[in-house]
Simulated assay, not measured.
Amino acid sequence: MYQRILVAIDNSHSTPRALDEALKLAGIHQAELHLVTVINLLEVAVDEPRSHDTSRLTTQADAQGEAILAPALAQAASHTGPVHPAVRHCWEGGKDIAHALLVHAKEIDADLIVMGTHGRHGLRHALLGSVAEYVMRESYLPVLVVRSAH
C-alpha cells in the first residue's frame, strides 16, 4: 500500500499524464501526494546575470518553482487527501536534478516516485541525458515512468 507518492513536476508535456496516474494511485491507496519540482540555480543565474546573491537566486528559483507547480496543484485539487508542494534547488541538470528528487523522496519517506519522460533517444538523449533514467537507476523505491503522448 502506498502512503506517500512523490510526483516529479516540470513544465513538460509528460507531467499532466504522470500526475493523472499518480492521482489514480493516490485515490486507490488514500495516499499523500508530494508534488516536487527542482529548479536549476545555474539556469536562474544565467537568466539574471547581475544577480550574484545566492539568497536572491533562491528567491527567484522559488518563484519559478511555484509557477511550475501551480498547474499541477490545480490538476490535483480533486484529490481528497493531502497534497504537499515543494521546490528543490540544484546547481546542474540531469543527475543533480535526479539526486534532488531522490533526497526529497528519502526525507518524506516516499513509497513511490511517479514521473514523466520525454522519450528522447539517440543523440538528443546522449547530449541531454534523462532525469527519469537517473532516478530509475539510483532509486531504492519503485518508480513509475509515464511517457508523453507527444
Score class of each variant (00 low, 15 high):
residue 61 A to H: 10
residue 135 V to N: 07
residue 99 H to M: 14
residue 61 A to V: 05
residue 64 Q to D: 00
residue 142 P to T: 01
residue 63 A to F: 08
residue 2 Y to D: 04
residue 33 L to Q: 06
residue 141 L to E: 03
residue 105 A to S: 06
residue 34 H to V: 13
residue 46 V to I: 15
residue 90 C to P: 03
residue 122 G to W: 13
residue 56 R to F: 12
residue 51 S to Q: 12
residue 73 L to C: 06
residue 149 A to D: 03
residue 82 P to A: 15
residue 32 E to P: 01
residue 136 M to L: 13
residue 107 E to D: 13
residue 114 V to Y: 08
residue 141 L to H: 10
residue 48 E to D: 09
residue 72 A to W: 08
residue 52 H to A: 01
residue 100 A to H: 04
residue 127 L to R: 10
residue 15 T to D: 05
residue 49 P to C: 06
residue 49 P to K: 02
residue 137 R to D: 13
residue 127 L to P: 09
residue 27 G to T: 11
residue 55 S to F: 14
residue 88 R to T: 02
residue 47 D to V: 00
residue 49 P to I: 11
residue 14 S to H: 00
residue 121 H to L: 11
residue 127 L to Q: 09
residue 121 H to W: 14
residue 57 L to V: 09
residue 137 R to Q: 15
residue 143 V to Q: 04
residue 111 D to M: 15
residue 27 G to V: 11
residue 108 I to T: 05
residue 3 Q to G: 08
residue 9 I to Q: 05
residue 30 Q to G: 14
residue 120 R to I: 04
residue 42 L to E: 13
residue 48 E to K: 08
residue 48 E to R: 11
residue 38 V to I: 11
residue 48 E to F: 15
residue 44 V to M: 11
residue 139 S to R: 00
residue 79 H to L: 07
residue 4 R to V: 12
residue 51 S to R: 13
residue 68 I to V: 07
residue 134 Y to G: 02
residue 137 R to K: 15
residue 46 V to P: 02
residue 138 E to L: 12
residue 35 L to I: 11
residue 82 P to S: 14
residue 131 V to T: 13
residue 128 L to A: 07
residue 147 R to G: 04
residue 82 P to I: 11
residue 15 T to Q: 06
residue 61 A to R: 05
residue 40 N to S: 08
residue 82 P to H: 07
residue 51 S to W: 00
residue 141 L to F: 12
residue 143 V to H: 02
residue 24 K to V: 13
residue 136 M to P: 00
residue 128 L to V: 10
residue 26 A to K: 09
residue 35 L to Q: 06
residue 78 S to F: 10
residue 119 G to M: 03
residue 146 V to S: 01
residue 114 V to S: 05
residue 26 A to C: 12
residue 134 Y to K: 09
residue 21 E to P: 02
residue 30 Q to F: 11
residue 37 T to V: 12
residue 137 R to V: 10
residue 47 D to S: 15
residue 143 V to L: 04
residue 81 G to D: 02
residue 74 A to C: 00
residue 94 G to D: 00
residue 33 L to T: 11
residue 82 P to W: 07
residue 52 H to R: 15
residue 30 Q to H: 15
residue 103 V to G: 00
residue 37 T to G: 05
residue 83 V to G: 02
residue 139 S to L: 05
